[in-house]
Design a protein around this nucleic acid. Sequence first.
DNA 1: AAGACGGGGCG
DNA 2: CGCCCAGTCTT
Length: 347
Amino acid sequence: MNGQFSDQLLAWFESCGRHNLPWQQEPEPYHVWLSEIMLQQTQVATVIPYYNRFLQRFPTIKLLADADIDDVLSHWAGLGYYARGRNLHRAAKMICDDYSGDLPANKEQLLTLPGIGRSTAGAIMALAFKQHDAILDGNVKRVLCRFYAVNGWPGQPAVEKRLWQLAEGLTPEINVAHYTQAIMDLGATVCTRSKPQCDICPVASECLARKQESQDKYPGRKPKKTIPLRETVFLLLENRKGEILFEKRPATGIWGGLWCFPECSPDDDIEEWLLAKTGFSASIIKKLSIIKHRLTHFRMEILPVHLKVKQCNNVKAMGEQQWCASGDALKFGVPAPVRNLLLTMSE
DNA sequence: AAGACGGGGCG
DNA sequence: CGCCCAGTCTT
């Protein structure tokens, strides 16, 4: 029977699960939603300080909806995947407009909100509304791949389809909130990527991967490909007051909506490029050491160049711009390399 | 179906 | 350095 898996997991959860995470204290729908969005592609330990700061600044969905997007993004800065922050803000507005400020307890309606997909909708239904619904996040995928010895990479549509079937089959009708938390905890603390602790696993005796002594084979690896190198130049323009010029990036694409420095290619003549594109006449003070930034899909090498502005004729703004003392810039949403650069400079 | 999207943690 | 993480959206 399917009930055995959930029963064993629930019994284990009671004594060994995590019951002290910040979003478990007041499990209201907003808290569950916020934590689920932050936890997408991001680990618990990283999320916790961001979660606490965010909720302190935006205690309710209404206050979030009414906030300025820059304010929202500055509290997201450093977490990555900034579309999550923008979607959260958009969804908060929709929730206020369409549902009087409360998350709908309805899966189809949740799925219409930006940033909420199948797994997050399932998590909100189960954890916040105690409704029977399955999730399939990275932890659950790993647990199920091992328990059923599912071959193939979980990102593969056929494999993912199979995993959803298994996840739905195992999810119990009752105690669904505890079960959902339990299977995530099992993946996070016991059925870990490397060195799983099968000796303390509540479902080890039925686990096919363990029977085959091939836990390391599951889940199947993502086919790897060589990731490209992207080289860029950060232009740190300083005016007479010692302020630095920042530009707001477009809402979509890398670091969408965050504040950054003007950027050119290493192939450009820097002073010429500046004059042509922005109207600033500036001279190079110093080229700083190259910053290496590694992402999932490419590597970045950033050359920061410090310049002094001599003259400004007809500034051609390429987007929103502002001059700002380097220390004050951290109040805005800036990407991690920019933050690190500013911190280094102020030392 | 495939690619884009950030940053941190770990072996 | 490679791989992964409480995924979703766009093309």
